[in-house]
Write a protein that binds this DNA or RNA. Structure first.
Lengths: 220, 220
DNA sequence: ATAATAGTGTCTGTGAGACAATATGGA
DNA sequence: TCCATATTGTCTCACAGACACTATTAT
């Protein structure tokens, strides 16, 4: 009755490591592309999953153990030829998580990626473009930070994603304008200089994106 | 081997009519939701379609006969319950076409839509949000114009989408900065006042989006 | 005190929006 | 000529970025 096509969900898992953007990959255990690195992904479990985002969360949850993960749909890629087994479609989600050790995925820097299984290299590139672009006008980079962070640390995360330095004053103005982070009352420990205030994301924005009224940097 | 789920492609067809944004719908001829209005959609034809955008173009082509249509993926909606027949997924595309008469679809104003089949009313709302938002910073509204149009007409299209008036000078600056339209050399005919220059979209931007360097209107 | 970085105050150039002036076709 | 709208010129205020200054910790 319905056409036979392969439908999967893949997750692009971003995190920071050594001040560089990394993506979490798994090694394929079966054909096709056995042995190659690929995005974590899988099939919908119709009995268990309520929708595709649930599927993506389930796949993500099997690779990390972070709470309040920010996850968003990137889009759906498809073609008659992207999977040697047949006409295939993949609904892609991307997630941002704070730096952590996970034995379930291996982290690779997004900007020097070797060949991956299927069209996953293209997908990673598209997802990286998306999050870099969103960093210009939203709170997205805070999801790469841990529970507590300083404003200079957050600025550094923004700069890593944007690939350029931003003005300190402008940065603070924009961030505080978004009204999504607050002081914890604790100071940054063990510094060799004036310690910064440790901040946290306000309750309610743990996994919700906020938009800036104007761009952080127009890249002009 | 693979889980059974219903995968379809649906197209949100936007056009302007009476200076209001309209969406093209078809009446369902079969159950479920027989008789209700719905987005034009269908299944992938694995033998014929190279990818999902091709599928969307094919569906669109069966409803209109416009060339150089602007079409873009909105996203994929899914859930175990959105289709009474079973776990279903719909990859949604939206297209913008100039005003035209098509007997294949009926046009409805997007802002006063009655109930539609499935979750199509939500999809239309989401798509309308998307194109309205994109109008702030891109050339998207030009795809609602015909082959030739004046700048005041184009401004009116922007204003319809944005739901607010924009400054004439600012508008012209932004549009011309994008460098996507050019003079035809012809003047607007049959006016009761000074005629405007008829413009056209530059070759190469017929169905390609251009981004403005800054927003047209910050909505602040 | 010095070093180093956090955090704040202030100036300036750019550009969006407001408004004014000019141009052009029809009646 | 007048009317109505197109098109262009100019002013001003707000804001982003630059830069300088003050604050706070450890040594």
């Amino acid at each position: 009755m319905y056409p036979t096509l392969i439908a999967t969900v893949d997750v692009v898992l971003f995190t920071l490591k050594d001040t560089r953007l990394h993506v979490g990959l798994v090694q394929r255990e079966a054909e096709p592309y056995k042995g190659l690195w690929a995005l974590p992904g899988g099939y919908v479990h119709p009995q268990e999953d309520t929708d595709l985002e649930y599927t993506a969360q389930r796949i993500l949850g099997s690779k990390t153990d972070t709470k309040d993960v920010f996850i968003e749909q990137l889009g759906t890629v498809s073609s008659a030829t992207r999977d040697p087994r047949g006409w295939s479609l993949s609904v892609v989600y991307y997630a941002l998580i704070p730096a952590q050790n996970s034995e379930k995925v291996r982290l690779f820097p997004v900007d020097s990626l070797h060949d991956l299984a299927f069209d996953h290299k293209d997908i990673v590139a598209k997802a990286a473009d998306r999050i870099r672009n969103k960093s210009y006008y939203s709170s997205l980079p805070v999801f790469l930070c841990g529970d507590m962070f300083t404003l200079p640390q957050l600025q550094s995360v923004y700069e890593t994603l944007l690939g350029e330095s931003v003005d300190k004053v402008t940065f603070r103005r924009k961030i505080m304008e978004m009204d999504i982070i607050e002081e914890t009352g604790i100071m940054e420990p063990r510094t060799n200089h004036r310690p910064a205030k440790l901040m946290r994301v306000k309750q309610g924005f743990k996994n919700k994106l906020a938009l800036a009224s104007r761009n952080l940097n127009c890249g002009g």
